[in-house]
């Protein structure tokens, strides 16, 4: 998912004494494979992850990892296991989250089965470093999102980020990680940018589609080409550490629209929408994979919030067959609309 394979790869290589295979980058073939073996109206992340799992099995992996979430995401692994078994592969499947909760004991047990030398203490230390790494990456990402549309020499941010990721991969301990982070933060700050008054757009929506650039057809890059500053809330830091606290805050904020949890990230999105409305953003883009039930449910509520705060709202629903051209056209129209609105004010 996105660039998070770096910290996860780091974690696995350090706690396990086996060969860890990097997940192949999502390509058209991944989607084709995933599409072929998936049920017809399951949501997109299922197809993407299934495709990735198939590709890694082809390359010779025999232990697979899958996460889980609050909606049907937590149930992916059961069906994927069944489908892959039918295809004739043999493997161990470790699921990290079931029914919205992590069963630490079971995971440790599972890890011990594949690796007899697995040590809890050591992996705890490395888990800590991994979490820190994710946190640093997200902090840098927020900075990049603010400035990438306005850089003087094009492509500088991306180049620097690639460098940073490769040096993160070689991390030896916590302090070396920390110093690399400081070093790169300075470098990112030194990138020359040209920024005057600009349009501000918030991107909200379903977590997988937001975090995997391939799944949203590089929406953020496209926005940056329009010279728009992008604000995005969902990242791994949010999902891992902040969600529980924030949800309570959001519940207070959106009292007028919703009094309860709405499943998965739906309530969070209403909260963000209200926040963006209060901060007078120029527009909001809501993206999701098609058939994502919680996000579909939240759409009427978002529409009402948008009406109340008079903020333009654009919905995108991504499928394997979404064409990039059609998406660009809609984005252009949206951009023209919010720009004109800004001029008229």
């Amino acid at each position: 998912m996105g660039d998070y394979n770096v910290p996860i790869y780091y974690l696995l290589t350090h706690i396990l004494h086996c060969k860890v295979q990097k997940p192949p980058k999502i390509s058209d073939r991944t989607i084709e494979l995933g599409n072929k073996y998936s049920p017809s109206f399951v949501c997109m992340p299922f197809k993407y992850t299934l495709g990735t799992l198939l590709e890694s099995l082809e390359k010779g992996a025999n232990v697979l990892l899958q996460m889980g979430g609050g909606c049907r995401y937590g149930y992916y692994y059961a069906l994927q296991k069944e489908i892959l078994k039918e295809e004739g592969y043999t493997f161990d499947f470790i699921n990290l989250v079931t029914a919205g909760k992590t069963d630490v004991k079971k995971i440790i047990h599972d890890f011990k089965q594949i690796d007899t030398k697995f040590s809890i203490l050591k992996s705890g230390y490395h888990l800590f470093i991994t979490m820190k790494m994710i946190r640093y990456m997200d902090k840098i990402d927020i900075m990049i999102r603010k400035n990438i549309g306005f850089e003087k020499n094009k492509g500088e941010h991306i180049r620097l980020k690639k460098q940073m990721l490769s040096s993160f991969e070689k991390t030896k301990g916590y302090f070396s990680l920390f110093f690399t982070y400081l070093q790169y933060r300075k470098k990112f700050k030194n990138i020359r940018i040209q920024k005057g008054k600009c349009l501000k757009v918030g991107v909200i929506g379903e977590l997988y589609t937001i975090m995997e650039p391939f799944a949203n057809y590089d929406l953020e890059m496209m926005l940056s080409q329009f010279k728009i500053e992008v604000t995005r809330f969902t990242n791994a830091t949010y999902l891992l550490f902040q969600k529980k606290k924030r949800v309570k805050k959001y519940l207070k904020r959106v009292k007028k629209y919703s009094k309860n949890r709405l499943g998965a990230d739906a309530l969070d999105n209403v909260g963000r929408m209200v926040y963006l409305g209060e901060k007078k953003y120029d527009g909001v883009i809501h993206i999701k994979s098609s058939f994502c039930t919680p996000e579909i449910g939240v759409m009427p509520i978002l529409r009402r919030v948008a009406n109340d705060y008079e903020i333009p709202l654009l919905f995108f629903s991504f499928d394997a067959n979404t064409s990039k051209v059609g998406m660009e056209t809609r984005l252009e129209a949206f951009y023209d609309m919010i720009e004109m609105r800004k001029k008229n004010e």
């Binding site: 909606c71 629209y257 919703s258 009094k259 309860n260 949890r261 709405l262 499943g263 998965a264 739906a266 039930t293 919680p294 449910g297 939240v298 009427p300 509520i301």
Partner: peptide, 11 residues
């Protein structure tokens, strides 16, 4: 998830 969201949606 529809079962837990429909009340708020309808509202």
């Amino acid at each position: 998830t529809n079962f837990l969201a429909v009340y708020d949606i309808a509202q």
